[in-house]
Amino acid sequence: MHISEGVLSAPALVTGALLAAGGVAAGLKKMDYERIPEVAVLSSAFFVASLIHVPIGPSSVHLVLNGLLGVLLGWMAFPAILVALALHAVLFQFGGLTSLGVNTVIMAAPAVTAYYLFNRPIRRGGHLLSTLAGFGSGAAGIALGAVLVAVALVSTGEEFTGVARLVLAAHLPVMVIEGIVTGFCVIFLKKVKPEVLEVGK
């Protein structure tokens, strides 16, 4: 879920940058110095997890896991995602410097939403409710992200409608996979290390 350089219009880029700055400021405020290693090492785990390619029929998709990251980190998902995307921009030129703000919002806003909707049911619920909430957070992370990509594209110009539709359709299978993986993953975390689910508080 990256939009590359040179595509979006100035208003879209500026709006994205301002929203991202707000989110990152909120996240940094929550993150005391003693929590920096926690957030940083978790975000590098997510960076690494996004290198995993999951087969789906003849093709494969790579994990994004922004929903899961959001459930764990809450608002701190904003700075965590910003640093990961900044590295992507400098080292691999996926996304980019000028679209850094927009791309951060595309991934982090759904993450924070997932935190508020699903963190509590995951922690408090029984096996079934936690699994469903896990599925929900994974699927919502992708679905909302794809919607935001589409919004950013269409706000740049009507002519991007076709691409935006394609982006939405392409993310449907990813949404299901992420939901399933996140569902299993939160159950695992609940059993093995329930404290991780409290980090975002």
Partner: peptide, 25 residues
């Protein structure tokens, strides 16, 4: 089976990272 295995891989990655971060601090 694949999705479950990857989920546990990610989970393990998170657990280890979390513990590592405590030691780092």
């Amino acid at each position: 089976h694949t999705y479950r295995t990857y989920a546990y891989l990610v989970g393990m990655l998170i657990v280890r990272s979390y513990e590592r971060s405590q030691r780092i601090y």
